[in-house]
Design a protein around this nucleic acid. Structure first.
Length: 473
RNA sequence: GUCCCCAUCGUCUAGCCUGGCCUAGGACGCCGGCCUUUCAAGCCGGCAACACGGGUUCGAAUCCCGUUGGGGACACCA
């Protein structure tokens, strides 16, 4: 029973992308299911584009979505001698050679070839020069096989055959001594004993270039799996044009990480008709054969629905915990500090089926902080009219006679008054709603009163009556 | 240009491997209704797809070939 070892290997050249998270997720799921190892490796061999901020963003993003790794994070820049020594091995074995073509020359030839409608491949002119000690700048190239074929049995797409004749000799060591991607991945995947290389579809054509390197180095070739891409609504590769692509942007927009993960796992993978999965569910049910072979369009509407589902069904105290930072950002730091966790959870229950994001929830929840109510002008003008004052006064008197709040008795009392006055429920409910919350839309009145408590309910009712009498705040 | 991948409702997908159970199922969104003190939520119903053309077969969404369309790759980026 060979031990499964998989990895997620992002390059730190920006924020953590949604597509990257999905790739990481599928790897993670497989590792957890197989009781294997999930490795985090930072591919930062391009020093001109890699930044420490990006590394932090990757780690932060992974932590937010709860994808924990067992080994790493490794940084390729800390493993330079490994790549160099393996490159030298290939040179010694004559499976690599020095190339003294300059980057400019190469670029010019490539342009030329493209203009002529030819394949922009390296022409191999240094291949047989047998340069042993280059005097100036030189890059090391791998001698790729030129005949035969490379067959990949992809975990997702099945058998794929590549003709080796289309391969060219790729650079494995740049003239500055740094390895290139196609070489460093191979050395790392081999040395880290990665058993399954699962990555984006955009790497599919890299596979036949990498397989011969594994072989030349004498390493076993891992299994490969290529995940379909995530597209935008116009079927083009998902980019900023389609909206936020940074995973952390979704945190800021009020998404729950569980919802994000659930949405992402369904983008390209399915288990019959099931839409909602717990982590454990995903781990147990995940299978490569159920991973989609075609690209998927990212659908923000469905993600939003998923988030709403999680807001409604997650434990209220869990949602409350996620909500607190957003509340504080909204300027309610003092108010939040003054209330208990239990009350906050109660608040979540009050509004949870109305808010699709935590950002929306912040807005729904605002009226319940503080003693006094803040009226929405239009709402107050419409419902807190002088004509309403006497009825509200009567309601207040009845409520005041109760020593404590009870949903049932207060509601009965309310209905009785409506009946006696010969008015409709709505005629009294709306003014009371505005008095209590300042707005025309809110959860059920008696749930609102429950959250507010007897004192504040009475206080706000009086405040509403004042406003109704005077027509002023 | 060359090579590779892909193709079921607008979108995510089930079904395809192991042809008949498919007058193609579910979900998001949309539309209509119910419920209702507001706003939601919930419930019920509706619209909507096998890219096209050839085969194979008694029978094809399912297997084969081609066409078309989409995507990706061809760097001293990853």
């Amino acid at each position: 029973m060979s031990h499964v070892r998989v990895r997620f290997a992002p390059s730190p050249t920006g924020f953590l992308h949604i597509g990257g998270v999905r790739t990481a997720l599928f790897n993670w799921l497989f590792a957890r299911q197989q009781k294997g190892v999930f490795i985090l490796r930072i591919e930062d061999t391009d020093q001109s584009r890699s930044t420490d901020e990006s590394i932090h963003a990757i780690i932060e993003g992974m932590q937010w979505v709860g994808l924990d790794w067992d080994e790493g994070p490794f940084r390729q820049t800390e493993r330079m001698d490994l790549y160099r020594s393996h490159a030298m091995q290939l040179l010694d074995k004559r499976q690599a050679y020095w190339c003294i073509c300059t980057a400019e020359e190469l670029e010019a030839r490539r342009k030329d070839a493209e203009a002529k409608g030819l394949s922009p491949r390296y022409d191999g002119r240094c291949r047989n020069l047998a340069i042993t000690k280059p005097t100036g700048e030189a890059a090391l190239r791998f001698k790729a096989p030129q005949t035969g074929e490379t067959v990949v049995d992809d975990l997702i797409k099945g058998k794929i055959v590549f003709d080796n004749a289309v391969l060219d000799d790729l650079i494995i060591l740049r003239s500055n001594g740094y390895p290139t991607y196609n070489f460093s991945v191979v050395v790392d995947d081999a040395l880290m004993q990665v058993t399954h290389v699962v990555r984006g579809d955009d790497h599919l054509t890299n596979t036949p270039r990498q397989v011969p390197i594994f072989q030349a180095l004498g390493f076993p070739v891992p299994r490969f799996g290529h995940l379909p891409m995530i597209l935008g609504s116009d079927k083009a590769r998902l980019s900023k044009r389609h909206g936020a692509t940074s995973i952390m942007a979704y945190k800021d927009m009020g998404y729950l990480p569980e919802a994000m993960v659930n949405y992402l796992v369904r983008l390209g993978w399915s288990h019959g008709d099931q839409e909602v999965f717990t982590r454990q569910d995903m781990i147990e049910k995940f299978a490569w054969k159920n991973v989609q072979t075609s690209a998927a369009v990212f659908n923000p509407d469905k993600l939003l629905w998923m988030n709403a589902e999680y807001i409604k069904t997650s434990p209220p105290n869990h949602v409350a915990r996620a909500l607190v930072p957003l509340l504080e950002q909204a300027g309610l730091k003092g108010e939040v500090a003054a209330v208990s966790d239990e009350w906050l959870a109660q608040l979540v229950v009050l509004v949870k089926e109305r808010a699709k994001t935590l950002v929306e929830m912040v807005d729904w929840v605002k009226p319940y902080f503080g003693q006094a109510v803040v009226f929405e002008e239009e709402a107050a003008r419409k419902f807190l009219t002088p004509a309403m004052a006497p009825v509200l006064q009567k309601l207040l008197a009845r409520f005041e006679s109760f020593p404590s709040f009870s949903k049932q008795t207060w509601e009965e009392s309310f209905k009785k008054l409506v009946e006696e006055e010969g008015i409709k429920m709505g005629q009294l409910a709306q003014p009371v709603r505005v008095a209590l919350t300042g707005r025309t839309a809110s959860p059920g009145l008696f749930e609102v009163m429950d959250v507010l408590g007897r004192d504040r309910t009475l206080f706000r009712l009086r405040q509403g009556i004042e406003r109704a009498k005077t027509g002023q705040a």
